[in-house]
Design a protein around this nucleic acid. Structure first.
Lengths: 164, 164
DNA sequence: AGTGAAAACCGTAGCGT
DNA sequence: ACGCTACGGTTTTCACT
């Protein structure tokens, strides 16, 4: 049922993925040794994994605090049920906001769950919340602040857009 | 290796961060050209950013679908309010679960918000939900599963633990 | 598909500006 | 601090096993 494209990934491929997930800059020589291969076939496998889109990209994980984006907010959004077009418009608007680092269509209490990363709460209210409320499809927003993060899913397309 | 690093990010540093956030494997020569520097000082700045822990790590972004982890679930957890120790025990238990890729202490309706990545719903129920409910601190769990992801915060410490 | 060589390429340390 | 140059290491291609 829910185990589709496992095909083509053998044990060595999974080892490679595990290593690169932890450190994407692992030199190919080290990677080869860790997975029990010599450098050449290891490099080939990585290339193939990239072409097959199993390895989608490589990202640097940046300290949110260091760049002044220390506030994370989750917003549960309820939209009007009458029109799919409205929902599409909502999604498109959200995709255009760099402060919104994640957007999921979810079951349960809300329709969408958004993760927003911003410098402070005032910015959230002034920028994101206001923009979201202006969208006609949005019926309700429940905001919940992350007071502390014990574990985070790491690399994020942060909004580093404050240049002199 | 870990320093405060609150200070000293100029425009070039931010440019470097933006590039590496998009592609952590950008060759130093290319990076240097993009930010308007020659290779050596560019390399030096990257090293400094790493030592200052502004660049925390580099991660490969792996297709969840390709490795058979196609289900994402959000769990809003309410814990007993009477004891901080219970909350600590809860956090420790959660940190030990590789399926839980994110754990935030949040304001609002719930106390914790968890993001869980697993092969299918059955695994969620059998593994994660069951384990969480067994914790004495947990009073209530609201599960909401991601039916579609329009944007995701990217690199994640996925649980690739199914090896021959 | 994996191995082992050689050649091109890149990263970085040292020194001069 | 930046830029130039040189050296050591890495990546990658190739013919072969």
């Amino acid at each position: 049922m829910n185990k589709p494209a496992n095909i083509g990934l053998d044990a060595i491929d999974l080892k490679i993925l595990r290593v690169l997930q932890t450190d994407a800059r692992t030199p190919n020589i080290v990677l080869a040794e860790k997975v029990g291969l010599s450098p050449s076939p290891c490099s080939r496998r990585v290339k193939l994994l990239e072409q097959a889109d199993v390895l989608e990209s490589y990202r640097a994980v940046i300290s949110r605090f260091a760049v002044g984006l220390s506030v994370t907010v989750f917003a549960g959004i309820t939209v009007e049920r009458h029109s799919d077009d409205n929902a599409d418009a909502f999604v498109n608007a959200v995709l255009a906001m760099p402060e919104v680092v994640a957007c999921h269509l979810v079951s349960g209490e809300h329709d969408f769950l958004l993760e927003v990363v911003i410098p402070d709460m005032a910015t959230y209210e002034a920028t994101v919340l206001r923009a979201l409320l202006a969208l006609p499809a949005v019926r309700d927003i429940r905001t919940s602040f992350a007071m502390r993060t014990y574990k985070s899913n790491g690399a994020l397309p942060l909004d580093i857009a404050k240049l002199p």
